[in-house]
């Protein structure tokens, strides 16, 4: 796997210039079919969100709304708006702390290798693959005994700790590409552990931070199990609120659809604007570089 850190966004086109032939026609047909699979649910999501409850019925499911019913969004915001702010606070704080920890860990593990560093790192990485159900009961008790149950800081603690493996992994692989000669040179200039971090490592870490921040923000924003277990009504993030909004029985579908759009917008925007960094985080989770 070491040969595939190449992100698909860095296009290196070496193929022959495309001609329009039957195979290329079939290629576009395949692409269109695949795109329909991904986009039709989004089309339905948007048109349903803009309909009034009485306009949502069997015969007109796929038709455009007669007029845009913005009330769906204000109604949905009334139900999940506070939770969105919870999610925002949670994701920003948890991401900032785990990114900082990951950067320092990655630096220590890649530039100050000691005996057993790799084994230690593997043991740390295991923490990102475990099903959290296998730690949920003690975690719940622990957070409760700290007096943080139902408090957003309890949730932040959980996300910071279980975020350490992935942020460390991404930074460790990022710093592995920094030439050791740079570190050696700084050592000769008399810089120590912190001096090298401040003068050599940190200034070139911006892309690493972007990848980690985007990835971690998305993960924390989208997480559900901790959200459902460790919070009470005042501190629930948006994923939990959305599941409650959509879970009711006699539900009028424009409301959960509008709620889903609200909950999706932050991460979707980040993905569309900074997609290439998102893909790097995605690949980092499986490709150990």
């Amino acid at each position: 796997m070491t040969s595939t850190p190449l992100s698909p966004t860095s296009v290196s086109s070496v193929h022959k210039s495309p001609r329009f032939t039957l195979t290329r026609g079939l290629m576009y047909l395949g692409l269109i079919v695949a795109a329909l699979f991904f986009l039709l649910p989004i089309y339905l999501l948007i048109v349903t969100a803009f309909k009034t409850p009485d306009a949502i019925n069997l015969a007109t499911t796929w038709q455009l709304p007669k007029f845009l019913n913005w009330a769906s969004f204000s109604d949905a915001w009334a139900k999940v708006g506070g939770n969105m702010l919870n999610s925002l606070f949670l994701a920003v704080v948890a991401t900032a702390i785990s990114a900082m920890l990951g950067s320092l860990n990655g630096y220590a593990l890649s530039k100050w290798k000691f005996r057993g560093a790799n084994t230690l790192f593997a043991l740390m990485l295991f923490g990102m693959f475990i099903p959290y159900q296998s730690v949920l009961i003690p975690l719940f008790q622990f957070i409760k005994s700290l007096g943080l149950y139902g408090n957003i800081w309890g949730l932040i603690l959980a996300h910071v700790v279980y975020g350490i493996p992935i942020t460390t992994l991404i930074f460790r692989n990022f710093y592995a590409d920094v030439p050791d000669a740079l570190v050696e040179a700084a050592t000769i200039d008399g810089a120590g552990f912190w001096g090298i971090y401040a003068k050599v490592i940190f200034p070139i870490s911006i892309p690493g931070f972007v990848v980690v921040i985007i990835w971690q923000f998305t993960q924390v924003w989208n997480e559900f199990l901790f959200a459902a277990t460790l919070t009470s009504s005042g501190s629930q993030p948006v994923t939990y609120a959305l599941s409650q909004l959509a879970g009711g029985q006699a539900v009028s579908w424009n409301l959960p659809m509008a709620g889903a759009i609200l909950a999706a917008i932050p991460t979707l925007l980040v993905y569309i604007v900074l997609g290439r960094y998102f893909v790097r985080g995605l690949l980092a989770g499986s490709v150990k570089g």
Binding site: P8, T9, L31, A34, A35, F38, L39, P41, I42, L44, L45, T48, T218, W221, N222, E223, F224, T239, L242, S243, A246, W253, P256, M257, G259, A260, A263, A264, T267, L268, V270, Y271, I272, G275, F278, V279, L282
Partner: peptide, 23 residues
């Protein structure tokens, strides 16, 4: 095309589940 094929990865399973439950 790549953006279209990959965007669901940025969504929460809860959002995906809500959409597909309606579908």
């Amino acid at each position: 095309w790549r953006t279209i094929f990959l965007f669901p990865m940025s969504l929460s399973f809860i959002v995906t589940g809500t959409i597909w439950r309606w579908m």
